[in-house]
């Protein structure tokens, strides 16, 4: 649950990017960081193995400014997508307020996407959170891939596989090019703040 300091009029929200390994979570944060770095005080922290896989997490904190008198401090995290790092994923998800699920549009990733979403459901349940009632935004990433050698799933299939029950907002994106990366983060931040507000009321 968000850290809310009524006296200081400050709210801290934690948003975690999850999804299958190599799906583009870190690339999302890198793009965001490059777009806002000149306006924020903080740095992005990445802990990677060689070959650019996230080993522990990426972390990008920033001060969003004031909404209705409350200063909103946002923290973006990514988890490692590789199946074997579930303990780390669970740990990073502790205290999460909103989730971006980055799905990989490549056809070969179809099963991995589904498994990863199921893993998210379990990990949230571990903290007594119901994924179906939780702020979440789906991102269908790598839409820029359109060479005949790399078939990609159409959006209807992704929707059917991942969003039939969730009915969450979703974006087609290319984290590499930056398409809809900002739209995704804006959506999850606003969903998260609204949900926090509803819990308070």
């Amino acid at each position: 649950m968000a850290v809310i300091n009524i006296r200081k009029k400050e709210v801290q929200i934690k948003i975690v990017y999850v999804g299958p390994g190599r799906g583009g979570k870190t690339t999302n944060l890198e793009y965001l960081f490059s777009s806002i770095r000149h306006r924020i005080q903080s740095d992005m922290v990445s802990i990677k193995t060689h070959g650019d896989r996230t080993l522990f997490f990426d972390f990008l904190p920033f001060d969003l400014g004031t909404i209705q008198g409350y200063r909103i401090k946002t923290q973006l995290y990514t988890v490692p997508g590789q199946v074997k790092y579930n303990a780390t994923r669970k740990l990073v998800l502790k205290g999460v307020d909103g989730v971006v699920f980055v799905a990989d549009s490549m056809a070969v990733m179809r099963e991995k996407n589904i498994q990863s979403l199921e893993n998210l459901r379990e990990n949230l349940a571990f903290y007594d959170l119901d994924m179906y009632k939780f702020p979440i935004v789906l991102q269908y990433n790598k839409r820029d891939l359109n060479s005949p050698d790399i078939p990609i799933l159409d959006v209807a299939t992704l929707q059917q596989d991942l969003n039939a029950k969730l009915k969450a907002p979703y974006f087609e994106a290319s984290a590499l090019r930056g398409d809809n990366v900002i739209a995704t983060v804006k959506k999850i931040i606003s969903e998260t703040i609204v949900s926090i507000q509803e819990h308070l009321a």
Binding site: S35, L64, I67, Q68, I182, V185, K186, I193, V194, Q197
Partner: peptide
């Protein structure tokens, strides 16, 4: 009102695309 306040803040922060 809250929704539009959030939207305005986000537009200001990230810039219109």
């Amino acid at each position: 009102k809250l929704a539009s306040d959030i939207e305005n803040r986000l537009d200001d922060f990230f810039g219109e695309q």
